[in-house]
């Protein structure tokens, strides 16, 4: 199992073990999303200050199994349990989640080289959640910029969007990233490591004692995050702007960004999606 995520094997081979891990991580992440969806929230104003997701659960599971499929199972759990079953479907926004959460979590999981090193564990959890939230923040800002006509014409509005998204990012990092992320993860990971893997017929990941996170830096994984960003943006923009239809009619926007800016990510997204699915199909 520990070998699965190395550079030698393809990320997209999908065997029985991957299926087991996929179902396992998806069920638990999904349950977590479903439960936190119905937990009472203490909203302080309209800012989301409620109990966010118990994000430590999916992150710890991905860190235990360290495969792309484990990482993909996290947003799949959200899509299946929260969006589809509980009916809270947010259109193409699910593509944003599928792309960003899976790649960010996977990238962070590969950085985790020494399971005994608590500092590394904390750092990796922060990177996974931080990277995801950070990119999501940009996507959000971009969405409003594209969606609202004559945004720049309203004094103070663009600034207000930046400020609010920034504040949201910070509160998310504190609540989801630290309170429901790093702190419980530090407690949970050592309790599961070496116990849950054999239960599922797999060897635990032992890593290398004292190894630095840099060893786990994977260009491929980093690249996938970098690709996922514009793709996610493309999907978000596609939804928030009617597949670019209203943009075409907005000369200011065209002047400023050019039509290709919108078209390119959509086309790339479609292509990559098709390639991924084909590969996933054939490798089983």
């Amino acid at each position: 199992m520990s070998e699965m995520a190395t550079e030698n094997t393809s990320w997209f081979s999908f065997g029985q073990r991957d299926m087991t891990v996929f179902i396992f991580v998806m069920s638990l992440s999904g349950l977590q999303y479903a439960i936190t969806e119905v937990l009472p929230e203490f909203d302080v104003g309209p800012l989301e200050l409620g109990v966010g997701d118990f994000i430590f659960i999916p992150i710890v599971l991905v860190l235990l199994f360290r495969t792309f499929w484990a990482a993909l199972a996290v947003p799949m759990g959200e899509v299946v349990f929260e969006d589809i079953l509980l009916g809270d479907f947010n259109g193409l926004g699910v593509m944003e989640d599928l792309l960003l959460v899976s790649t960010c979590f996977f990238f962070a999981a590969l950085l985790f080289q020494d399971p005994k090193n608590r500092r590394q564990l904390a750092a990796v959890v922060l990177i996974a959640e931080g990277l995801n939230e950070f990119i999501a923040m940009f996507v959000d800002i971009g969405k409003v910029y594209i969606g609202v006509e004559e945004l720049e014409a309203v004094p103070g509005l663009p600034e207000s969007i930046l400020v609010l998204e920034g504040v949201d990012f910070i509160t998310q990092m504190v609540i989801t990233g630290i309170i429901f992320g790093v702190i419980p993860a530090l407690y949970l990971y050592p309790k599961l490591h070496g116990k849950i893997e054999p239960l599922m017929g797999m060897e635990p990941y032992n890593g290398t004692r004292g190894a630095s996170m840099l060893r786990g830096f994977s260009w491929k994984a980093a690249l996938s995050v970098l690709i996922a960003f514009p793709l996610a943006f493309g999907f978000a923009a596609a939804e928030e702007s009617g597949f670019g239809l209203n943009i075409v009619w907005e000369p200011e926007f065209l002047d400023a960004y050019g039509e290709t800016f919108i078209a390119a990510p959509i086309i790339v997204a479609a292509l990559v999606a098709v390639v991924l699915w084909q590969r996933a199909k054939h490798s089983t």
Binding site: G156, E159, L164
Partner: peptide
Amino acid sequence: FVTVLMGGS
């Protein structure tokens, strides 16, 4: 509301 804080309308 935040726009107002930023000096807008």
